[in-house]
Amino acid sequence: MSFLHSLKDRWKLDSLGQVILILIAFACTGFTVMFLKTPIVEWIGGSEGNQTLYTILYYIFILPIYNIILLIYGFVFGQFSFFWNFEKRMWYRMTRQKHKIKSE
């Protein structure tokens, strides 16, 4: 079984086309966040100073931004419901509210 077929089964999708669209949405989100790093770090405090502190603050600020961008790309590629459920599962896992995750 190929990698794409295993993702299709794991994510309970209907077609390989959906898998490809979801992977493209993840890739676009990653590239967008990569391009946003410099402006966000400059907004936090510039390129001078403690780079470790700026990196930590960047990761704190980028998490909600990443999630919003992921939902936007999910909408653009017609896979919003997948990404909305993905975000809910991630939120429940981060907050340890496992009882609210529907059985997968």
Rank of each mutant, 00 (worst) to 15 (best):
E104S: 10
A27T: 09
I69A: 10
I101P: 08
Y58G: 03
W91M: 13
M94N: 13
I60V: 14
P64G: 01
R10L: 09
L57C: 05
K37Y: 09
T32G: 02
M94F: 11
I44V: 07
I68V: 13
T32V: 07
V76D: 07
L57S: 10
Q97E: 15
T29M: 04
I44P: 05
T29R: 03
F61R: 00
V76G: 04
P64S: 03
I62M: 14
I72G: 11
K88H: 12
K37I: 10
Y73S: 01
S81G: 01
M1K: 02
F75A: 02
N50H: 02
Q97V: 06
W11K: 01
P64L: 10
I22L: 10
I68K: 02
L57D: 08
A27C: 13
F26C: 13
V33R: 01
C28S: 14
S15V: 05
E42R: 13
A25L: 11
W91N: 12
A27W: 09
K98L: 15
E87A: 08
V33G: 04
I62P: 01
N50M: 02
D9E: 15
I69V: 14
L70R: 00
I60C: 06
F75K: 05
K102W: 09
K102C: 04
W43M: 12
V19S: 06
S81R: 10
K88A: 12
K102E: 15
G78V: 08
M1G: 04
G74F: 06
L70N: 01
L7M: 11
K88P: 04
G30Q: 10
A25H: 09
K100R: 14
Y66R: 13
K88L: 15
V76Y: 09
L57T: 02
S15P: 02
L23H: 04
F35H: 05
F3Q: 03
Y92L: 14
V41Q: 05
I40Q: 04
G74H: 11
T29W: 00
F3K: 04
T55Q: 13
I24A: 12
S15L: 03
L16D: 02
E104T: 08
Q97T: 14
I62E: 15
E42K: 13
Q51M: 07
G46H: 06
L63I: 06
M34G: 07
F75P: 00
D14I: 04
D9W: 03
I68T: 11
T55F: 15
F3A: 08
N85V: 03
Q51C: 01
E42Y: 13
Q97F: 07
F31W: 09
K8F: 00
W91A: 15
Y59M: 05
S15H: 07
Q97N: 15
F31S: 07
E104I: 09
N67S: 13
C28H: 01
E42W: 12
L21T: 07
I40D: 07
F77A: 05
F80W: 13
F77D: 08
R10Q: 10
D9H: 03
R10V: 03
G46S: 02
F61I: 10
F31K: 01
F86S: 07
S103N: 15
R93A: 10
